[in-house]
């Protein structure tokens, strides 16, 4: 964990019991005065990783900004399940415009705030933009790159569930290789999503040399809270990419959302790290490296790899990708392994 020197290994996880901490170090979610920015009653599926990630992220951002936060939201699951007219789960000023423009809308909000501050607004209002992986890595990519390049004062949060789940589980450029989606069916010579395609947005964000880039999963929510709060200490463009399992799209049990998130990290499939101004500054180490198979097997989107004749060659390729992540993002805990 990046924010304190002592590691608490309890119940086989990194979770830190709040009662062991001094009050100011306790989690935002443990605070009686947490804002419930994304309030209960929304329409997300059981076990939705995105709903969980968004609640923690936005509550942490609210905490860090003294509740002076405005959010721009891309079209997608998060937008749809949180605001079925005339209801809304958002307890903060929130705006949805289009699928591909959340970063630019946020730029506009930040520009307006800057002028209002010049004209006497006392509150230091901050801006967050959020979207799924489709809205981020595909259709919103141009606007996101523009926002990064101008270094606009916006925190962009991508909730990555590896596909267009809202429209019925189609492939995005964040869909992992070999995964089954409605547009990469497990048929033909190369079942599932092809290898050698797709993009890893955090690396692209780093290439823009923006002040802060981080990845996180919903398995380590203290880490997520910490990164959101840390992001709010910077001015300029910031990017947090959160892996959020989708029980529907992944074909996983809804009670396995946290477990799968942890396995994604512990296998090296999803690297958890921080970077500042384009340079890697911190990696969340893997305690015990697990084979990718442990992450893949519980998910029906990879079921075709584990049939009567296991797709050994494909598994080897997926393992190689995880190993590469481990090297590239320095994920190995040398003490533990």
């Amino acid at each position: 964990m990046s924010f304190q020197p002592v590691k608490f290994y309890q119940t086989g996880t990194f979770t830190v019991g709040n009662r062991l901490l001094v009050p100011e170090e306790r989690s935002v979610q443990a605070n009686m005065e947490r804002t419930n920015s994304l309030n209960s009653g929304h329409r997300a599926c059981q076990g939705c990783g995105e709903a969980l990630g968004a609640r923690y992220a936005i509550d942490a951002a609210m905490h860090a900004t003294n509740n002076q936060l405005i959010a721009a939201n891309a079209t997608g699951c998060l937008e749809v399940f949180s605001t079925p007219y005339p209801e809304t789960s958002w307890q903060i000023p929130w705006m949805h415009s289009l699928f591909g423009n959340a970063p630019a809308v946020a730029t506009g909000i930040a520009a307006a705030i800057k002028i209002k501050r010049q004209k006497g607004l006392k509150d230091d209002v901050r801006v967050v933009a959020q979207g799924g992986d489709g809205g981020t890595t595909d259709i919103g990519f141009g606007c996101l790159s523009g926002m990064f390049e101008r270094n606009d004062d916006v925190l962009y949060i991508c909730y990555d569930n590896g596909g267009y789940m809202n429209t019925g589980v189609q492939r995005s450029s964040a869909t992992p290789p070999a995964a089954r989606t409605a547009t990469t069916m497990p048929v033909g010579q190369q079942p599932g999503n092809v290898f050698g395609q797709g993009k890893f947005m955090p690396a692209i964000a780093m290439a823009h040399e923006i002040p802060y880039v981080a990845t996180a999963t919903v398995a380590d929510l203290r880490d997520l809270e910490h990164k959101v709060k840390k992001a709010m200490t910077f001015r300029g463009a910031r990017y947090i990419h959160i892996l959020v399992p989708c029980p529907l799209g992944w074909g996983a049990a809804s009670q396995d959302t946290i477990k799968l998130s942890r396995l994604a990290k512990e296998t090296g499939t999803f690297p958890v790290f921080e970077a500042e101004y384009g340079e890697l500054t911190n990696s969340s180490k893997i305690r015990r490296v697990l084979p990718v198979e442990e992450y893949l097997r519980p998910q029906k989107r990879f079921a075709h790899l584990f049939g009567k004749t296991p797709a050994v060659a494909t598994l080897v390729r997926l393992q190689a990708l995880a190993d590469k992540n481990i090297r590239k993002y320095q994920l190995l805990d040398k003490e533990a392994n």
């Binding site: 730029t107 909000i109 520009a111 307006a112 705030i113 606007c143």
Partner: peptide
């Protein structure tokens, strides 16, 4: 004075920035 001029990366972004700033109460 008291005006932010933003060079954006496309017209789609131009109108989107305008949407954000107008919704935040700025004459855009």
């Amino acid at each position: 004075t008291n005006c932010e001029f933003i060079n954006v990366e496309s017209e789609f972004a131009a109108m989107s920035v305008a949407i954000g700033s107008s919704a935040t109460g700025a004459r855009t």
